[in-house]
Simulated assay, not measured.
Amino acid sequence: MGILLVNAFMMAGPYALGAITDPGASVLDRTIEGVVLTFAVGKFYLMFSFLFGYSFTLQLASAERDGTSAVPRLLRRSLGLLVLGVLHAVLLYTGDILMTYAVLGLILIAARNCTPGTALRAARILYGSLSAFLLLLGLATLLMPDADADAELAEGLSELIAGYRGDASSVIQANIGQLPDQLLAALLMSGFVMAAFLVGLHCGKRHLLADTGSHHARMRRIFLLGAAMGLPGSLFMALAVSGPLGPRWSTFGTMVGTVTAPALTAAYVCGMLLLMKTARGARTAVVFAPAGRMALTNYLSQSLIMAIVFTGYGLALYDRLSPAVVILGALVLYACQLALSTRLMARHRYGPVEWLLRAITLARLPHDRDRSAATR
């Protein structure tokens, strides 16, 4: 849901989350953008990355149970993710994460035999080094003379809008034209993705999510510290990008928000795990669990539906909807996905894309199970 809220803004128009200042934005528009910046931007892709690293250990355990080598399976899985990511980026949404996962997943394969401690130390070094670089880069922008960056970014705006409102071929051309900037951003953020992979690998090797009840006090500390460190940084980013601080602070604010995002992500993870230990939280988890079992299908179908809504594939509403309408539409879409996921997972073990990726990983057709097997 968090990824959907961010991606909906990115796909809805060129002024996404302060990328370019929207001269026609109302106070309500900026407030909604500020809320999404504070609580969603930069947090949920890290959560996905942590889960990707954790699930890597489950892939290794599965191969060991089957008495087969894990490496060929994992290489095929990375290839499958890469192909899906390229198709996703070219046809639907340039902000694809699957290509990044496919490439960085090769590093996980190489590091599969490392100890949990080594994985955690590597994550800390990677996070610390990249954070220092980004903060210095952000501070440097404050020392530079003011430049009309928005004017430079807005030069091709009308052409971009026309491309996304045109026919299918112009949408694909617009996506391809956006790819170099998106790939550069992905390269810059890949260090944080890799650090989250390694933290997930550390936790998976120690089976920390297998018995969260024994880590209640530790998770509570992480929740409180993560919120105390992450929320102020995210709020500063929102004030700098969509708030009153102004364009001069935008880059530095973005860097601060990026560096503090892992703390808030950790707070989210531990907060949800603590919530699920309560009776109300357990009931809530039942509602969300089916969508989690087919997260890849939901991720790609979100992009497909939004492409139909926003681009020339369908309604061509690119740059025509307010942030409030975009957020409302995203929440309605997610509610529909929850309902559909519940129906599908009651009958099948895998979602459609999960089934396809598993077939590629195993190099054979997976056997779908009946409802009781899926529940087990």
Rank of each mutant, 00 (worst) to 15 (best):
L5D: 02
M11P: 07
P14S: 14
L17Q: 11
D22K: 06
P23M: 08
G24H: 12
G24P: 00
I32P: 09
G42P: 04
G42I: 08
G42A: 12
K43Y: 08
F44W: 11
F44A: 05
L46F: 02
M47F: 15
L51F: 14
F52L: 01
S55P: 06
F56P: 11
T57R: 13
L58I: 11
L60Q: 15
D66G: 09
T68Q: 13
S78K: 06
L82A: 14
L84I: 12
G85D: 04
L98P: 03
A102F: 07
L104M: 15
I125E: 00
I125W: 13
G128A: 11
S131W: 08
L134V: 04
L135S: 05
L139A: 14
M144L: 15
A154D: 11
L157R: 15
E159I: 04
A162T: 10
G163R: 06
Y164W: 07
D167R: 01
A168D: 01
V171M: 02
V171A: 05
Q178I: 02
L179Q: 05
A186P: 03
L187Q: 05
G191L: 10
A195V: 03
L198F: 13
L198E: 01
G200F: 04
H216D: 10
R220N: 12
R221E: 05
F223R: 13
M229F: 14
L231I: 15
L235H: 04
S242L: 04
L245R: 07
P247L: 07
G257H: 06
P262R: 06
A263N: 00
A263T: 00
L264A: 12
A266H: 04
A266I: 05
L274W: 04
L275I: 04
M276R: 11
A279K: 13
A285K: 13
V286L: 13
V287K: 11
G292Y: 09
R293N: 05
A295V: 11
N298S: 06
A307N: 06
F310D: 08
T311P: 07
T311N: 10
L315C: 08
L321P: 10
I327A: 13
A330L: 02
L333C: 05
Y334I: 06
C336Q: 01
C336M: 14
A339V: 12
H348P: 03
P352F: 04
V353C: 03
L357H: 07
D368I: 10
D368H: 10
